[in-house]
Design a protein around this nucleic acid. Structure first.
Length: 912
RNA sequence: GCGAAAGUGGCGGAAUUGGUAGACGCACUGGAUUUAGGUUCCAGCGCCUCGCGGCGUGAGAGUUCGAGUCUCUCCUUUCGCACCA
């Protein structure tokens, strides 16, 4: 062994050895249980950042640990290669997105390989290649034929200057990021996945996901948002037919469209009657007697109708179109409204209720109209106060009379009873909803209804760098899916987008085609798919990356579901929900073959790693655009709490503006490149420090203070092993009783203590990595063990055997985390033996035996002393010993204790 | 605004089931070796106090013999909010 730890040569040799031996090539013919370990694949943004290192190291630790535990492990890697940043880079540098993306992939692959990840690179998947997206298009056509994909109009952010659709991220304070123009909402036709059809299954199957964090399941359940409420109608009469007032937005288009029950299905009462109906949905039907107005969305047909005769209302509705479509913006903007002048009839009281247009009512939700109960809803209350609308209490605590302050306590609670509600008085929530729904149903004006918050998933993007939607528009035949023998629809790769609309829509050579059905001239769809579609099924493709006959082949049945999935908590809802949805879609289309109903969920166990966050810095350019500056280029001064208070750009010494502390990302340019650490200290130090810094699920503000501490630890392990090996390796103990190895000998007390700590550590590390996934404490336990070994000085053969046993165990325990160093350490400790073949160490129960324990003594819960006693001491003796303890005698000063609490193995608390 | 989390020394964090708060590491201080610096090793290191002792896990209340851990209210930070991925 070399006397000095030289990571560069050690890591190069280890990686060479792993490559040459094909150690991480995964095969399906194994008698071991399979373990499919998957980390979320990266977007090839240019360079790795610390979040990637964290994600992929966690995956590699678990992969290598399970390999040592006797599993047939598969750990693949690939590239989520379509996306917006490539188009931005293309415009900035005048290179096609494809070339930029492939360059980034090549660079980042080398970076990943230098981290020494045990990946089967033969399974690499790149989503922007036709070999991959061909099967996405194939699945699209199947789902289109099944009616799972349909077309309807939907709102997008429209930049009126650049004449292009903007992503939410490209809308800053209601303006387009390039043009600075006020963004408008615009309705365009789009393709949708009918994910709402799977809402109940997606909700129910969460219960079966025992290996998922509760918080993620809660977030998904809330997102799906199953609610039990009442859909009912207010009657009104105006000039003109009902037909002209049916909502345009949200209605399905085309011959395939099944009328959406949420938006336009006529209720029996609305057919043939002279009265028209304004439908609303509420989960608080118990407050129906407190309704004082109705609010409709700006796009609601009733608003459009009223605006015909009211120019100021038309102007208000126009004003509502400004701003983006993001829900957070809608929810935080100032609530504004305007009276339509129209009145509707309350179905139960017969009162005339005014109809207002509210900018906070969303056309895409429910009915696009809501009943307003200012007394029991905070938002309605604010609106009523602002516009001086009446407030009518209808809920109170039982027997409580009306008081001004009282109703505000009842925002959102279902614990009251009805008041001021006529025949419903004194009914509780459930009783009131039942009674009111029954009365509405008898009138033909309403019914109980289950509603989901989840909306169908719109996937059309008016962008270039994405998977083409395989549809051909024929004047005769309508929307025709591209037949299998014409797939894939290839995306041309040499295009540089100009930021004004979709390049594909300007390329006749792309969109001019003929109808597969009738042969007439037809136009190819030029929208591409949401990039979430690619990332919704890649985990399945890794099982059969080279399959040319289908999306996957029978190997999917062997590997799926993924045993361990690891990725950022930011994906807790959208990506994970879409992947779960796709698993069910693929199952129902028959992708996995016969008898695969059990493959309902893609990911058995999930770790959601916390974000690696860093401060952001920027400068405002002349046009108001923010130019984000990387923290590495900034000198920042911090206050006593470590927050940056002043910052200058190192290049020119002039100040920069401090933004928030946010997750590392391309868009905010606050990612920290791990390459400098790898270059200076090696991959093992980078991996070790990242795992030691915090447990995986915790968010982590990046700081490289302490990297040297991790390097120092590896040097100490190396030196301890080297010094031992130089004296000659020896046989290690394999049983707690040394007599079993060398009859007639006994270990010294110190050697027994050393072995006890060793085997306690093995037990803890096994549990920390395998069950708790707290790699930081596993590392700390090894540090403690090495500290103890440093103090253990026993040059006898028995002592040296204990040292050998300890060093071997340390190398084995650390191997999943710092595999290059451990590969070399093992060669030193066991010449001729390969770390790749080693099992994880097992704790020896005999070595763990301990007969004396330390008990804490408390008086009134305060620590006053301790006792070292035999493990078998009974309770009465313990109480006597405690009362005789010096500190206790002093504190009690002769008084009798009221009570003595003995917690076996832990403490004795004397209550005085 | 809504949903989900987090908050512990100067810093990252530990305390796994309500039972020794601060493991392990960084930084810092003192010492030894070497000395150009560094490396390595030893010791110290929550706050107040000469000490006895007291205080201490974002703030405030509560439950308990006992609370970092459980309950409630509030504050701050992070993630998500459907076209960033």
């Amino acid at each position: 062994m070399q006397s000095i730890y030289h990571p560069a040569s050690i890591e190069q040799q280890a990686q060479q050895h792993w490559n040459d031996s094909g150690a991480f090539a995964a095969t399906e013919n194994s008698d071991k249980p399979k373990y499919y370990c998957l980390s979320m694949f990266p977007y090839p943004s240019g360079k790795l950042h610390m979040g990637h290192v964290r994600n992929y190291t966690i995956g590699d630790v678990l992969s290598r640990y399970h390999r040592m535990k006797g599993y047939n492990v598969m750990q693949p890697m690939g590239w989520d290669a379509f996306g917006l940043p490539a188009e931005n880079a293309a415009q900035a540098h005048n290179v096609p997105p494809a070339a930029w993306t492939y360059d980034n992939i090549n660079y980042m692959r080398r970076q990943l390989q230098s981290l020494g990840l045990g990946i089967d690179w033969a399974r690499e998947v790149t989503t922007c290649t036709p070999a991959y997206y061909r099967w996405e298009q194939w699945l699209f056509t199947r789902l289109f034929e099944k009616g799972i994909i349909y077309k309807k109009t939907s709102s997008v952010n429209w930049d009126p200057v650049d004449h292009t659709v903007l992503a939410n991220e490209q809308v800053i304070d209601g303006r387009g990021w390039r043009s600075g123009a006020l963004v408008e909402k615009r309705d365009i036709p789009m393709y949708f996945f009918r994910i709402t059809q799977y809402a109940d299954e997606l909700l129910q199957d969460l219960d079966a996901l025992g290996g998922w964090p509760e918080q993620v399941k809660t977030m998904q359940a809330n997102w799906i948002g199953k609610s039990f409420g009442v859909r009912f109608a207010f009657e009104y009469s105006i000039e003109g037919g009902t037909e002209s007032l049916s909502p345009e937005s949200g209605r399905e288009l085309g011959e395939r469209g099944v009328a959406d029950s949420l938006s336009s299905s006529p209720s029996p009462a609305s057919v043939g009657g002279e009265k028209k109906l304004l439908w609303v949905y509420t989960t608080r039907a118990d407050t129906i007697m407190g309704v004082t107005f109705v609010a409709v969305a700006a796009e609601h047909p009733l608003a459009t109708y009223a605006a015909q005769s009211r120019p100021e209302l038309a102007a208000f509705i126009e004003d509502c179109k400004h701003g983006g479509t993001a829900e957070a913006d809608m929810a935080t903007m100032e609530k504004k409204g305007m009276d339509t002048g129209l009145k509707v009839t309350h179905p139960l009281t017969g009162e005339q209720v005014p109809v207002w247009v509210g900018n906070y009512v969303l056309m895409g939700y429910g009915e696009g109209a809501v009943m307003a109960v200012p007394a029991h809803d905070e938002r309605d209350f604010g609106f009523a106060k602002k516009y001086n609308l009446p407030i009518k209490q209808s809920i109170a605590a039982k027997d409580q009379s009306f008081s001004d302050a009282a109703w505000q306590e009842w925002y959102g609670t279902k614990d009251g009873v009805c008041v001021n509600s006529g025949k419903y008085d004194n009914l509780d929530y459930d009783q009131a909803v039942d009674a009111i729904a029954a009365d509405l149903a008898a009138l033909g004006l309403g019914e109980k209804k289950v509603q989901f918050r989840l909306r169908d998933w719109g996937i059309s993007r008016q962008r270039y760098w994405g998977c083409p939607i395989p549809i051909i528009h024929c004047a005769q035949c309508g929307d025709v899916p591209v037949p299998d023998d014409q797939l894939p629809v290839i995306l041309p790769e040499d295009v540089v987008p100009d930021g004004a609309g979709s390049p594909l829509a300007k390329m006749p050579e792309f969109y001019e085609t003929t109808c597969p059905k009738c042969g007439a001239a037809a136009r190819r769809e030029t929208d591409t798919m949401d990039t979430f579609v690619e990332s919704s099924w890649y985990y399945a493709r890794y099982t059969s990356p080279d399959c040319t006959t289908g999306l996957v082949d029978e190997r999917a049945n062997y590997w799926l579901p993924v045993d361990q999935y690891i990725g950022g908590i930011e994906h807790a809802i959208l990506h994970l929900l879409y992947a779960r949805f796709f698993q069910k879609l693929m199952r129902d289309v028959g992708v996995f073959g016969e008898g695969t109903e059990h493959l309902a969920e893609p990911f058995k166990n999930l770790i959601t790693q916390g974000m690696v966050i860093a401060p952001t810095f920027y400068r405002l350019e002349a046009n108001g655009k923010k130019l984000w500056i990387n923290p590495a280029e900034v000198d920042a001064s911090c206050d006593e709490r470590g927050r940056p208070v002043g910052a200058t750009l190192r290049a020119d010494g002039l100040p920069v503006i401090i933004g928030g502390t946010e997750k590392m990302s391309k868009s905010k340019n606050n990612g920290v490149d791990p390459q400098a650490i790898i270059d200076e200290f090696g991959a093992d130090t980078a991996r070790l420090f990242m795992m030691f810094a915090a447990p995986p699920e915790q968010s982590l503000e990046w700081s490289d203070a302490g990297v040297e501490g991790s390097f120092r630890f590896l040097k100490r392990v190396w030196k301890a092993t080297h010094d031992h090996v130089e004296q000659g390796v020896v046989a290690a103990y394999s049983s707690g009783e040394p007599e079993n190895v060398w009859p007639g000998t006994r270990l010294s007390a110190a050697a027994r203590a050393m072995r006890r700590q060793l085997h306690q550590t093995i037990q803890k590390v096994d549990d920390d990595i395998g069950r708790r996934k707290t790699f930081n404490t596993a590392i700390a336990a090894n540090m403690e063990l090495l500290n103890a070994l440093g103090k253990f000085d026993d040059p006898t053969p028995m002592g040296r055997a204990v040292v050998q046993e300890t060093l071997e165990a340390v190398a084995l325990m650390l191997n999943p985390i710092v595999p290059h160093a451990c590969q070399a350490l093992w060669s030193g400790l066991r010449p001729g033996s390969d770390m790749l073949d080693q099992a994880f160490p097992k704790a020896d129960p005999l070595a763990l035996v301990q007969d004396e324990i330390e008990l804490m003594i408390q008086i009134n819960g305060k620590l006053r002393g301790s006792l070292t006693v035999a493990k078998t001491t009974d309770k009465a003796t313990l109480e006597q010993m405690a009362l005789a303890h010096e500190a206790v005698v002093k504190q009690l000063a002769g008084a009798q204790p009221k009570k003595i609490i003995v917690v076996p193995g832990r403490l004795i608390n004397i209550v005085a």
